[in-house]
Design a protein around this nucleic acid. Structure first.
Length: 581
DNA sequence: GCCGTTTTCGGCCCGACTGTTTTCAGTCG
C-alpha cells in the first residue's frame, strides 16, 4: 500500500493532465471523459482513496463519470501512486502542461507547438522564450500572441486563486448596482458560481440585457476598477479587475435573458445535461433560447426553459449535476429553506470573551436583522487566550442575561436572549465545564478547538463521546475546517451523523465565511438521514449577523428544507425540541 | 473513456472571441 493517501485534488490533477496529454495527441472524446472525472473529484468531499481502498472498483464506478477504466487507474494511483498510461505520457511528453495551461490563452495544442518547436517545458522556459522574441516567429503565433503570453505569465505569478464568497459578495453587489444604474441596462444579474453560492468563487460573471449593447460596453470599459481587458466583442467582454479577480460581462437581448442567465449560471455539467435533454427532444438549447429548428420555444425566463424541457424550476444552488435533473423531472426537488426563514442564532460571542460587543449590543443587532432569539455562547476556560469562562463566570453571565431579558421585556422588545456556552471538547471527549453548570444553560454547543490532528478513529470517538453528553445540544462547526487555512479534522462523518440521530444532538452549519462547516455535501447526508441541523453566524461583532446568509446558502446547496433547520422554529418550540426539552 | 426506458455500439453541448489567416483552429466558459 502506498504510504501517503492521495487527496481527491491530487488525483483530479493527474486526470486533468491525462486530458491535456490526450488533447495534445488529438485523441477524440477521451479528454472530456477525464476532465469530467477531474471536475467531479474536485467537488467531492469523501476521500476517493478511501472509497477505493474500502469498496474497490464496484464502489468507484458508482461515482458518476467513473467507469471501469478510470476506476482501475484510481486503484493503481491509491496502491502505487501512479498508473501505466499516465507514466507513458509523462515520459513521451516531458512538459509541465498543467502549469503552462495556467497562462490564459494557452491550451494543449499551443503548448505542443511550443514544446516541439522551442523545447519549452515549463513556465520558466516560456518566459525566457517570450522575452527573447522567439515565440512570435512560430507558425500561427505572432507578436500579439507573445505579448498575451507575457501578460498571462504576469497574472499567473500574482494569481490568488479562488476567493471566499462571503468576503467578495458585498463588493460584487456594489458592482451590480453600478451596472444596474446604467440607463441602457434593462436587466442585470450576477451569474456563475456566485449565483450558485459556491463557498469559493473564481471569477465574476455579469449578465446584462439591453437594446443598446455599445452603450453598456462603453460605460463598463470606463470603470476605474478595470486593470486589463483580455478581450471584447459586441456581446462579451473579459477583464481583470484591480482587486485581482477576473470578470466576464455578457450582453444579450431581452428575449434571451432567461436562456443566457441559465447558460451563464452553470454549472457547466448542469448545462450539458439540459442541452442533452433538448437534443433528445430534437431541439437545441443555447444562450439565446430553446429552439425547434428556427422556432423559439423559450428564452425570456429561466423557468420557461425548465418547463419546456419537462423539468421543475431548479434553484441555482442545486445546479451541480448532483441529481437535481432527475429530481426536477420527477417533481421531487425539495422546497429549500428560504433566505428569510431563520428565527434564531445559536452561536454568538460577546465581550465577555473574544467578541467585540456587549450582550445588549449583540441583541440589538440581532433584532435589527429580524431575529427573534439568540443564544450567547462565549468560549470556555480551556481557551485562555479568549478569556474563556469558568463555572463562576458562566453563572454570573446567566444572571446578567436574566436581568437584560427583564429589561428588554419592559421595553416591549421582541428579542429573547438565551444563555449558553461554546464548551471545549477535551482530547478524551470530556468537556471543560461541569455538567451541573451546563444543565443550567439554555443552549450548550460543544466544539473542537485543539488536538486537530488526532487519528480518524480517535477523533471520531472523541467527538461522539461529547455528543453523548445529555447536556450537549449542538455540535458546533463539526469538522473545524478553515477554508484555505486549515484542513478539516479527520472525522468519520457518517458515524457523527449516526450519533447525532441516536443522541438527538443538533449538527451546526457555522455560517462564518471561512468555516461553512458543515459543508454542502454533509448537509445533504444529514437531510437524507433525517438529522436536524441549525445555522449560526458565529458572530464576534454586531456586523457579523450578515454571515447567516452564507450559512443558509450552504444549507440550500445541501438540499435542506425549513424542517431540517431547527432555528427556523419559534423560540418555545425550539427549546422544547432540544435534548433536555 | 463513459453511457443507455429509443442504444452494450455509436454517439458524445454550444457559441463568442482571438490571432492568424484569407476560412478557421484553438481557447474559454
Amino acid at each position: 500500500m502506498h504510504e501517503e493517501r492521495m487527496t481527491n485534488q491530487e488525483i483530479a490533477s493527474v486526470f486533468r493532465e491525462m486530458a491535456a496529454y490526450l488533447d495534445m495527441e488529438n485523441v477524440q472524446f477521451k479528454p472530456r471523459a477525464y476532465e469530467k472525472v477531474a471536475y467531479t473529484l474536485e467537488s467531492l468531499d469523501e476521500s476517493v482513496s478511501e472509497t477505493a481502498r474500502i469498496g474497490g472498483i464496484s464502489a468507484l464506478i458508482k461515482i458518476p463519470g467513473i467507469g471501469r477504466g478510470i476506476a482501475q487507474h484510481i486503484l493503481d494511483l491509491v496502491k502505487d501512486g501512479h498508473f501505466t498510461e499516465h507514466d507513458h505520457f509523462k515520459k513521451a511528453i516531458p512538459v509541465k502542461v498543467l502549469d503552462l495551461m495556467k497562462v490564459s490563452g494557452l491550451g494543449p495544442k499551443m503548448i505542443k507547438v511550443l514544446w516541439k518547436e522551442l523545447q519549452i517545458r515549463d513556465l520558466t522556459d516560456l518566459e525566457t522564450a517570450a522575452k527573447a522574441g522567439r515565440i512570435r516567429r512560430l507558425p500561427r503565433f505572432g507578436e500579439k500572441s507573445e505579448q498575451k503570453i507575457l501578460k498571462g505569465l504576469e497574472f499567473v505569478k500574482k494569481a490568488e486563486g479562488r476567493r471566499l464568497l462571503g468576503f467578495i459578495l458585498p463588493e460584487v453587489r456594489g458592482l451590480e448596482k453600478v451596472i444596474a444604474a446604467y440607463p441602457e441596462a434593462l436587466q442585470v444579474e450576477i451569474a456563475g458560481s456566485i449565483r450558485r453560492r459556491r463557498e469559493t468563487i473564481g471569477d465574476i460573471d455579469i449578465l446584462v440585457s439591453t437594446s443598446n449593447p455599445d452603450g453598456v460596453i462603453d460605460r463598463f470599459l470606463n470603470l476605474s476598477l478595470i486593470d486589463h481587458v483580455y478581450g471584447k466583442g459586441p456581446t462579451k467582454i473579459n477583464v481583470r479587475l484591480k482587486n485581482g479577480l477576473d470578470a466576464d460581462l455578457r450582453i444579450v437581448p431581452e428575449e434571451s435573458f432567461g436562456a443566457a442567465l441559465c447558460y451563464f449560471t452553470g454549472s457547466k455539467q448542469h448545462n450539458i445535461r439540459l442541452r442533452e435533454i433538448a437534443v433528445k427532444k430534437g431541439w437545441k438549447l443555447n444562450e439565446y433560447g430553446l429552439y425547434e429548428g428556427d422556432r423559439l420555444i423559450a428564452g425570456r425566463t429561466e423557468s420557461g426553459i425548465y418547463m419546456a424541457l419537462g423539468l421543475s424550476y431548479v434553484d441555482p444552488e442545486l445546479r451541480e449535476d448532483l441529481g437535481e435533473i432527475d429530481a426536477a423531472r420527477t417533481r421531487n426537488l425539495p422546497a429549500l429553506i428560504g433566505y428569510g426563514d431563520l428565527k434564531g442564532d445559536l452561536q454568538i460571542q460577546t465581550d465577555w470573551t473574544d467578541g467585540a460587543n456587549t450582550i445588549e449590543e449583540m441583541a440589538d443587532a440581532a433584532e435589527a436583522t429580524g431575529l427573534e432569539y439568540i443564544a450567547i455562547t462565549d468560549h470556555t476556560k480551556s481557551l485562555p487566550m479568549t478569556g474563556g469562562s469558568d463555572e463562576k463566570k458562566l453563572r454570573n453571565q446567566i444572571t446578567a442575561v436574566q436581568t437584560l431579558n427583564r429589561k428588554l421585556k419592559l421595553k416591549k422588545r421582541k428579542i429573547t436572549i438565551l444563555t449558553g456556552a461554546e464548551v471545549n471538547i477535551m482530547k478524551d471527549g470530556s468537556l471543560d465545564i461541569d455538567d451541573e453548570v451546563l444543565a443550567e444553560l439554555d443552549v450548550v454547543g460543544a466544539a473542537v478547538h485543539h488536538h486537530f490532528d488526532l487519528p480518524r478513529d480517535e477523533q471520531t470517538q472523541r467527538v461522539v463521546r461529547a455528543m453523548e453528553n445529555p447536556n450537549v445540544d449542538i455540535l458546533f462547526h463539526p469538522t473545524s475546517r478553515a477554508i484555505h487555512r486549515r484542513a478539516p479534522i479527520e472525522l468519520d462523518v457518517d458515524a457523527i451523523i449516526e450519533a447525532a440521530g441516536r443522541t438527538g444532538t443538533i449538527l451546526e452549519i457555522d455560517a462564518s465565511p471561512e468555516r461553512l462547516d458543515l459543508k454542502d455535501e454533509y448537509i445533504r447526508k444529514c437531510v437524507e438521514a433525517g438529522v436536524r441541523m441549525c445555522i449560526d453566524s458565529d458572530a464576534h461583532a454586531t456586523t457579523e449577523f450578515s454571515f447567516l446568509e452564507f450559512g443558509i446558502a450552504q444549507a440550500r446547496r445541501g438540499w435542506a428544507t425549513r424542517k431540517d433547520i431547527i432555528n427556523t422554529l419559534p423560540v418555545k418550540r425550539f427549546l422544547a425540541s432540544l435534548k433536555k426539552g
